[in-house]
Simulated assay, not measured.
Amino acid sequence: MRRAVAAVLLAVSGAGSLVACGTPEPTVLGSTWQVTDVWVTPGDPSAVPDGGTLVFGEASLAGSTGCAPIQGTVTFTRDGETVQAADADAVTVDRLEIDVPAADCPAAWTHELLTTMLEPGATFDLRQDTDTELVLTLRGEGVDRPAIGLAAV
């Protein structure tokens, strides 16, 4: 009898482990995200040599473009309704302040791309394939929508 119960418990705990191997829900809080790629035009290079960083709070965004500090407010949503970040499938930039970068900043290309994409009113779909990778895809009509690739650091 004990062996049967132990076998059932082992099978149930193993099944729980298999479920955990699926695609994780986006968990944007609790990590500093390094910008690794910015996809704007198909066929153009996307790797960012001098990436910025993004840090999300429940209603905030802070970090750097690689040239200048940024800070602002965001709203997390699921199906158009405001939700906690852990339950979100999208994030909208509500307000953003970006300091003026130094004229000789080596990450000027990254700065320009990020400031163009992270403008107030921009909504991004959240996709997290692993615990350490996050993709923000700009919502819109196009097939090849701009996106930002991030890695947890």
Rank of each mutant, 00 (worst) to 15 (best):
E81A: 14
V93P: 02
R78L: 10
F124E: 00
A4C: 09
R78F: 03
V135H: 07
V91D: 00
A4P: 10
I70F: 04
R95H: 09
T77I: 13
P106T: 08
T137N: 07
T110Q: 05
A68G: 06
D50G: 12
G22D: 10
S60Q: 06
T116M: 11
E133K: 14
C105E: 15
E25I: 02
M117K: 10
E112R: 13
V153Y: 15
L113T: 02
G43A: 05
T27A: 15
A4R: 15
P45V: 03
R145K: 10
E97N: 12
L9E: 08
T41N: 07
G80E: 13
G51R: 00
G140Q: 12
Q71I: 06
R3W: 05
E112T: 13
P26A: 04
E58S: 06
V19C: 03
T53A: 11
R3L: 11
L9Y: 04
G43F: 02
A108G: 13
A108T: 06
A7T: 10
V93Q: 04
T92D: 13
P146I: 00
L113N: 03
S13R: 12
D99P: 08
A86H: 14
S13M: 14
C21F: 05
V19F: 03
A122P: 02
G22I: 05
A90D: 04
D87T: 11
A20T: 15
R2A: 02
A108I: 14
A86E: 06
G72Q: 01
Q84H: 15
E58D: 07
A62S: 14
V40M: 11
L29W: 01
F56A: 00
A85Q: 06
A88W: 12
T32F: 04
G72N: 00
G80R: 15
A6P: 04
E119C: 07
C105L: 08
D89H: 05
P26R: 09
A20V: 09
L10W: 07
T36E: 02
L29C: 04
A107T: 09
V135E: 06
V143L: 15
D37Y: 14
E97I: 13
L150Q: 06
V5E: 12
T82K: 15
A102T: 11
V100A: 08
D99G: 08
R139W: 08
V19Y: 11
G140L: 11
G30N: 07
Q34C: 03
W33T: 00
L134R: 01
V100P: 12
A147T: 01
S13P: 06
V19R: 06
F76L: 01
S46A: 13
A122F: 00
S31T: 10
L61D: 00
G52N: 00
V83S: 06
G121Y: 06
G43R: 09
L96W: 01
T82G: 05
R3K: 10
W39A: 13
G16P: 04
P49N: 05
G57W: 07
A108C: 03
